[in-house]
Design a protein around this nucleic acid. Structure first.
Length: 561
RNA sequence: UGGGGCGUGGUCCAACCGGUAGGACACCUCACUGUUAAUGAGGAUGGUGAAGGUUCGAAUCCUUCCGCCCCAGCCA
């Protein structure tokens, strides 16, 4: 059994976050803010002040009883129905092309229940053919379809209701008039925010509707009604970061957060696609490691079986060097852990890293691979996640220019640029946030800084043969102040030199014996780098803090929920 | 670990030099057939992070503690 030893004090649920305000569903104010600190927070737009009236009481006791009955019927199976619905969405969406509109799911469900018909094997109910996602709605104009999702908001205007539904793929406005659809109207009136629903109606283009389409609701089934006495806690208005982080499991339902997570997924997909296309093989590194990879940084210690201690990996690099010697061109993609007490908008204690490594590769190869990878990821998101970037109100012009090749400057040149702009940096210093921001603000795409002094880099960095005091390493700095998204370079392949460097860095040799083996048996020049997923996604999304781009951020003093 | 900032109803904020803790939103009721965080009218809840101290009187001043945010270091 494992026990997590490194523990961060659990923060109280009532902690407050007075200064930094986010609208639960607002875009982070920021990209056009101060260039030195583009993430600088601001206030939520003052125009966004009012919340829709949700959770009103039903108009009649009969209605409420009916709603309760509907909810009750679904209560036992509510959870199962939920996951079931999620599964159904994908396959039905695909299946429904071409046959949509012939048989609505809603009516099929009711018909099957009324007739006592058996659900098909593996399904709880017969859903018919036209259950679609909101994302697909545009191609169903004029057809009757069924949506499965949640009530995001409800606006009332007399005998007209404007519910807004969300299903994870987007949000869509519905319309329901009492005169025309008395039953659906009654079911919808007073329905509470985030109640789960199955909606049937006709899709139509409508200029006044957000997104350009709306659904004329003809049937509404409440899967589970959120209680008025315990309403959904996240309002459509500003909240403190702390409040939202305590409810991260609910916060991710808001369109902005969902859009970010979908962009993250696209970034991962594109990154792997690119690496695979370049002939790199995925070879994952272990999470438990016997010792530090780079020595200095603090590690999470775990008890590993009996008395033995192990650590959560802070980098897969050493291992990926081994698999590179086995397979040639490889990469890892997985979580890494840093127990440092970094409390900035660029740090997490648990984050994901993609680490390529190639035998017979040098610094130049890796700089080229890095810029190709980053360009491809950015361009893929730009192409395949238009809607999500729109939701985030991201300035896509700033992403469009992200095309390889990227500018490359040496450390020496970087120091010059810094000094010219009045920064006190002197030769031999490593760069902090300020320096990175000054450098990256000179360009419209990420900038590569290479050949740092060996003294400020990791022990395994190959020295520059022309100037041995320099390391053949490079960093890639994202624009707009998002900092270092890639760090890497050429590794030492000479056994004696590596042993010497271990000594210089006061590292013990025993834990590195296997690593030294790579230099004993057929050592070759090789290089690689690590790409920080969250920093990359934060930059692409333009979020003010890295914690928004991972479903459940782990930070110092935050391991809940 | 340093430096800075901050803790007030469920949420987000006010409260001048120390003088009866208030508003908006959320919630409830009513009106409204094209709303866009709908709007308008009405209603009921409910709070100064904790412990000391100064004072006739403390959200406000002092001390300690707790918690959070930002920045730096380290890094992706």
């Amino acid at each position: 059994m494992l026990r997590h030893r490194a523990r961060a004090p659990r923060r109280g649920p009532r902690g407050r976050a007075p200064r930094e305000m986010l609208r639960a569903d607002a875009r982070a104010p920021g990209h056009h803010a101060h260039p030195r600190q583009p993430w600088r927070k601001g206030r939520a737009p003052p125009a966004l002040r009012r919340l829709a009236r949700l959770g009103r009481r039903g108009e009649a006791a009969g209605l409420r009883a009916r709603a309760a009955a509907a909810a009750g019927a679904g209560t036992q199976g509510a959870e199962r129905a939920g996951s079931h619905a999620a599964r159904g969405t994908a396959c039905n969406g695909a299946a429904s092309d071409g046959s949509a509109g012939t048989n609505t799911a809603g009516s099929a469900v009711r018909a099957s229940r009324k007739n006592g018909r058996q659900a098909p094997p593996g399904h709880l109910q017969d859903r018919g053919m036209s259950v679609i996602t909101i994302e697909q709605a545009g191609s169903y104009d004029g057809q009757e379809v069924t949506l499965q999702g949640w009530l995001y908001n409800l606006r009332e205007s007399g005998k007209l209701l404007f519910p807004i539904f969300r299903d994870g793929t987007g949000i869509m406005q519905g319309v329901c008039a009492q005169k025309e659809q008395p039953e659906a109207f009654a079911a919808l009136r007073g329905l509470t925010q985030e109640s789960s629903v199955i909606v049937t109606g006709k899709i139509r283009a409508e200029k006044r509707a957000p997104g350009g389409y709306e659904i004329g609701v003809t049937k509404l089934e409440v899967v589970q009604r959120v209680s008025e006495s315990d309403p959904y806690p996240i309002q459509l208005k500003e909240h403190g970061v702390d409040f939202l982080l305590d409810r991260r499991h609910l916060w991710i339902r808001t369109p902005r957060q969902a859009a970010i997570l979908r962009i993250r997924a696209e970034a991962v997909r594109a990154a792997r696609q690119f690496m695979d296309g370049q002939g790199y093989t995925l070879t994952d590194a272990p999470i438990f490691t016997p010792a530090a990879c780079e020595g200095t940084t603090s590690l999470f210690e775990v008890q590993y079986i009996d008395e033995e201690k192990a650590y959560l990996t802070q980098s897969g690099q050493l291992y990926v060097e081994a698999t590179a010697m086995a397979l040639g061109k490889v990469y890892t993609f997985g979580p890494t852990f840093r127990a440092e007490k970094s409390k900035t908008r660029r740090h997490l204690t648990e984050f994901w890293m993609l680490e390529p490594e190639a035998a017979f590769a040098d610094l130049g190869d890796m700089m080229e691979l890095g810029e190709g990878l980053v360009s491809h990821v950015v361009q893929s998101v730009l192409k395949n996640r238009v809607r999500e970037l729109e939701t985030l109100k991201r300035d896509t012009a700033k992403l469009a220019s992200v095309q390889a090749p990227f500018p490359r400057i040496s450390y020496d040149e970087a120091i010059e640029i810094l000094q010219k702009s009045g920064n006190p940096a002197k030769y031999g210093d490593d760069f902090g946030g300020d320096e990175e921001t000054i450098l990256s603000s000179q360009y419209d795409r990420p900038v590569i800084v290479h050949r740092y002094p060996a003294a400020i880099k990791a022990f395994y960095m190959q020295p520059d043969p022309l100037r041995p005091d320099l390391a053949l390493g490079f960093d890639m700095l994202a624009p707009e102040g998002y900092g270092e998204i890639i760090g890497g370079g050429q590794r030492i392949h000479d056994y004696d030199l590596l042993v010497r460097r271990l000594k210089e860095h006061n590292l013990p040799e025993e834990p590195f014996q296997w690593y030294l083996d790579l230099r004993r048996y057929g050592s070759v020049p090789h290089a690689g780098f690590g790409l920080g997923l969250e920093r990359t996604v934060a930059w692409i999304c333009g979020t003010e803090h890295i914690r928004e781009v991972i479903p459940f951020p782990r930070m110092i003093y935050r391991v809940y929920p």
